[in-house]
Design a protein around this nucleic acid. Sequence first.
DNA 1: GATCCGCTTTTGTCTATACAAATAGATACA
DNA 2: TGTATCTATTTGTATAGACAAAAGCGGATC
Lengths: 247, 247
Amino acid sequence: MVSIHQRIFEDIETRIMTGVWQPGHRIPFEHELVQEYRCSRMTVNKALSALAERGMITRRRKVGSFVASRQIDRTVMDIQDISTEAELAGHDHGYRILRRRIETLDGATAAQLGETTGSDILRLHCLHTVDGKPNALERRIIMLAMVPSARTESFASVPPGKWLLDMVPWSKARHVIRAVSADAATARLLETERGKACLTLIRQTWQGSRTVTHVEIIHPGDRFQFAGDFHPTERGIPDQPPRRSSF
Amino acid sequence: MVSIHQRIFEDIETRIMTGVWQPGHRIPFEHELVQEYRCSRMTVNKALSALAERGMITRRRKVGSFVASRQIDRTVMDIQDISTEAELAGHDHGYRILRRRIETLDGATAAQLGETTGSDILRLHCLHTVDGKPNALERRIIMLAMVPSARTESFASVPPGKWLLDMVPWSKARHVIRAVSADAATARLLETERGKACLTLIRQTWQGSRTVTHVEIIHPGDRFQFAGDFHPTERGIPDQPPRRSSF
DNA sequence: GATCCGCTTTTGTCTATACAAATAGATACA
DNA sequence: TGTATCTATTTGTATAGACAAAAGCGGATC
């Protein structure tokens, strides 16, 4: 039914989780576990390596394996493309391009992105609706040097987030979540009041050391939240990842 | 220098990341990679298993291994205890208990927590300061059945978040991030204006199926943000996890 | 006391082999 | 035509054995 290395993994994991083995506790040596479970060392090793890869234990040659200090809290947030997410949840998603302009990167924006001034960029503003109600305002910058085909793309039928995702691989992403008060223009577009709390997600993706895109997504605070679960128990990535929040 | 299974892992990962192998592409069979790298199947298997565990490929017997559909975005946020985080960043952290009361769980709150009414709880309100300025308002509920020793703890010298972390193991945590406008009382405590956007983190932790604690941390929006990086490249959990945001 | 050397223990990696489980595709059959 | 069965292929798991790398420890030497 369950494999041996999996059983070893779970046995140890349980003892760590329930606090039977406190941080710093030395886990039995591989040869001890071999005796206990009557299996080969490779099998034990597979289980312990997996625990180490997870950060639940740390291992040192000649010394042994130890329960790692408590992972205070580490939560995995799935942040998805807004149209994909809305469709998955059975909602109707729409969007409208408010602005689409090719510009050259000015000093202030360049500094913000950590890029050099003067590059060609595509600046996109976009309003997303879910079931007819304004749900997000998207302000995006695309580096045209990295994504030349964006220069001629109208984004009339595929929203920019989705288009980029399919188009351009990336190697690094950074997210920032903050709360801001809506200014007049934002409030009008999102059909909320001026000064209202909005949840803003900023994302910048890179390929190597060069920015691909930078996007700021502004949600009305009363209609939106991010959520994430953390189960120290979970192994690997489930086939059907739990649906969490989106942007 | 680098082990063979690691080299195989990285070679394949690179091809996926850079888009040379698109989602759906079939990865060479194990026996093909064995020939290519002139190593044993176990070594190849270790690399491919790791890729599968990471969700970068999916594997099916008799069929083969395939590049998984793009992981749209999954970001890991380290959410730490506020005092620990402040100290790490070299700031001065202080706090003050505003309220500490033992109550019985009323209907509305019980529903919110997904617990049954009538249990004994400890309700704590707490104001955190960083370098003397109000930085967060903490509203916490502790289930006394799960943490009996909280009944007599004053929390005068150890902030409740830290105390609980050291005291009680947990098996599941859930986080919600939202933006809210400050009401009058909150604004006064945080020394900001009424209606100002605030970033709120809600966290509930369970042990098994029973709630341990529920906490709501309200930050002034202009002084706070969450941030998280995601590198598809990163293997495992680094020894010194990068410091990210806190609560 | 300080430094270097070699011994020993533990983990890390690799191999060659074996059998089990899943399953796509072919074949036989009703 | 549809269904059951067989077969070949691929991945999943496990084993026993081997050597390498890291590192604590004690002893020899200066």
